[in-house]
Simulated assay, not measured.
Amino acid sequence: MQKTVDLLKHALSRRSASDWSRRLNTTPSVFTDAKRKGHLSPVIAGNLAIDLGEDAEKWIAIAALEAERDSPMLQRLRQTLLHAKP
């Protein structure tokens, strides 16, 4: 499974953080904070995915999983998603 930081890197290779922040009506610090934390929020991930022509639902789900604390239920869900067919 890819990580939202991969989506962020892809987005920043296409446009600057300033361009994305104007496009998404946010501040460039959203992207700086995401890099520092190692993940995007589901809302930012979904919107970046839409603009990049990626599957927004997939990226929203990945971002939601990244935001959760580790638990047996989270591990079960990750394993299920890893084995799911696209």
Rank of each mutant, 00 (worst) to 15 (best):
T26Q: 04
R22K: 15
A64E: 07
R78M: 10
I60A: 03
L40C: 13
T32D: 15
K9W: 10
D6H: 08
V30C: 14
L8N: 08
S21I: 00
Q79N: 13
K35E: 11
L7W: 03
R15A: 07
V5F: 10
G46I: 07
A34E: 07
S18V: 11
I50C: 05
L40Q: 00
Q75R: 14
V43E: 10
R36L: 08
A49P: 06
E66C: 01
N47F: 01
R15K: 15
S41V: 11
L40S: 05
L7A: 01
M1Y: 02
L82V: 14
L24E: 06
P72I: 04
S21C: 09
V5S: 13
A56Q: 15
K9Y: 15
H10D: 08
T27N: 14
A67V: 12
D51F: 05
L40A: 02
P86L: 06
I44Q: 00
R22Q: 12
W59F: 08
N47H: 12
Q79F: 15
R69Y: 05
I44K: 02
R78L: 12
R36C: 07
L52Y: 02
Q2D: 06
A45K: 00
L77W: 00
R23M: 08
L65P: 01
S29V: 07
V43D: 14
L52G: 04
I62S: 01
L24Y: 06
T4M: 00
H83Y: 13
T80F: 13
L77S: 01
R15C: 11
S29E: 12
K85A: 15
D55G: 05
L74V: 09
T80M: 11
T26I: 11
N25F: 04
S71T: 06
R14C: 11
M1T: 09
L24F: 06
G53A: 15
Q75D: 08
D33C: 10
L7E: 00
F31T: 01
A63L: 02
L7Q: 00
H83A: 11
V43P: 00
R69Q: 07
L7S: 04
R69G: 14
L77R: 07
A63P: 02
I50G: 09
S21P: 01
P28M: 14
P86M: 07
K35W: 13
S13H: 09
E57R: 08
P42S: 15
P72W: 10
S13G: 09
I50D: 12
K3N: 10
L82Y: 12
S71P: 07
L65D: 02
I50R: 15
K35F: 10
W20C: 04
Q75W: 06
A56V: 12
K85E: 14
T4P: 03
T4C: 09
A56M: 14
D33A: 14
L74T: 09
R22Y: 06
E68Y: 13
H83R: 08
S41T: 15
H10S: 09
H83S: 13
R22T: 13
R23H: 12
L48S: 02
D6V: 05
R14H: 09
A11F: 03
D51H: 09
D55Q: 11
V30R: 14
K3R: 13
L8A: 07
R76M: 03
A64K: 03
W20S: 00
S71A: 01
R22E: 12
W59N: 03
R22F: 02
E57I: 12
M73I: 14
E57A: 13
T32C: 14
S71G: 11
V43L: 06
K3T: 09
